[in-house]
Design a protein around this nucleic acid. Structure first.
Length: 326
DNA sequence: AATGCGGGGGA
DNA sequence: TCCCCAGCATT
């Protein structure tokens, strides 16, 4: 039985993670909520120190609901996806106001919390409340695709993956089982060079049988975009503006810039730079100039103090690549 | 159904 | 370099 093999492997091989520490039910709920928010698109190894620091300073739902924005973001600094932090705090407030300070124990109610989608609602249901539900994260998705050797567009659709989850069977240890499946994905059934020789379920695995471990995923198109950024300089200061023009980095600080064509980009630039952002590739040409036609809503920032502001990595990258010319 | 959101780690 | 990570919200 696949369920038993997986749980047995998990019992002998699971990592010791801070949010897996034995504790009261109430604390378990809080641990699960915080860790699941932090783990959204972020590796376990990265999250561990953040989780520990967070819990030291913000030990329960009540303190989280009252924490200052500055302190909250400070704890999140470097994790990325900062709206997760704000949503986590909002969720804490809602749980206190609407659910008497205890997490709702079912998928539908959990999904009403901001920042909680299908995955997190399923994961919390299973992990904190031992509900018979298997979350579909990147790890379990990969394990499923490997076991069934799913390849075609039809086969790898989310809807079909949710159907196929039934091959994992049922167990009364739903909390452990959800974590066990993710653990197998993370530790053994890796995207490349999976450790099949350690895997407890190779006998059930079609990819193993066929010796075909390639994972089929929807192909994302990468678009090249070309921009001309202008560095306005005034003594020690550089001009940044609040971005209300481009769809990315909304309301955050960027250098004044405009989109240009590829041929223009080839012609006019004193310096060229490639910046990768999200799934966009951007080719940025930098133009240097002194004060002229200052854009509206500009913000002069002393270049040595650039680091003190909340500035997106995108802008920092451009700055870093040109600062020796200033 | 696509796309934007950040940043880090590993090959 | 490129790929992926215990995804979510918006369009």
């Amino acid at each position: 039985m696949i369920t038993k093999k997986i749980l047995n492997w998990y019992d002998n091989n699971k990592r010791s993670l801070p949010w897996r520490a034995r504790c009261s039910a109430k604390k378990k709920e809080y641990f699960t909520l915080v860790s699941e928010f932090m783990l959204q698109q972020t590796q376990v190894k990265t999250v561990i120190p953040y989780f520990n620091n967070f819990l030291k300073d913000i030990p329960n739902l009540q303190s989280l609901a009252k924490v200052s924005e500055a302190k909250l973001l400070k704890h999140w600094q470097g994790l990325g996806y900062y709206s997760r932090a704000k949503n986590l705090k909002k969720s804490a407030k809602m749980i206190i106001d609407n659910y008497s300070g205890r997490l709702p124990n079912n998928f539908e109610e959990l999904k009403k919390l901001p920042g909680v989608g299908d995955y997190t609602a399923s994961a919390v249901s299973a992990i904190a409340f031992n509900q018979q539900i298997i979350p579909l994260d990147g790890n379990i998705e990969r394990v499923l695709k490997r076991i069934l050797n799913l390849k075609t567009e039809e086969e790898i659709k989310k809807e079909n993956l949710h159907k196929q989850k039934k091959i994992f069977g049922k167990t009364s240890r739903s909390s452990d089982y959800a974590q066990a499946l993710m653990e197998i994905g993370a530790l053994l059934c890796k995207p490349k060079n999976p450790y099949c020789y350690k895997c407890p379920i190779t006998k059930n695995c079609l990819s193993f049988k066929r010796k075909d471990f390639e994972i089929k995923k929807k192909d994302k198109k990468i678009i090249d975009k070309f921009y001309l950024a202008t560095l306005y300089k005034n003594n020690n200061q550089l001009l940044l503006i609040k971005n209300d023009k481009f769809k990315f980095l909304k309301n955050l600080l960027i250098f004044p810039m405009k989109e240009i064509t590829q041929s223009d980009s080839l012609l006019k630039s004193s310096k060229k730079l490639n910046v990768k952002m999200s799934n966009m590739n951007m080719n940025i040409s930098i133009d240097f100039s002194y004060i002229k036609n200052k854009p509206k809503n500009g913000m002069w920032i002393e270049k040595t103090k650039l680091e003190n502001y909340m500035i997106p990595t995108f802008t920092k990258k451009i700055f870093a690549s040109v600062k020796h010319n200033l």
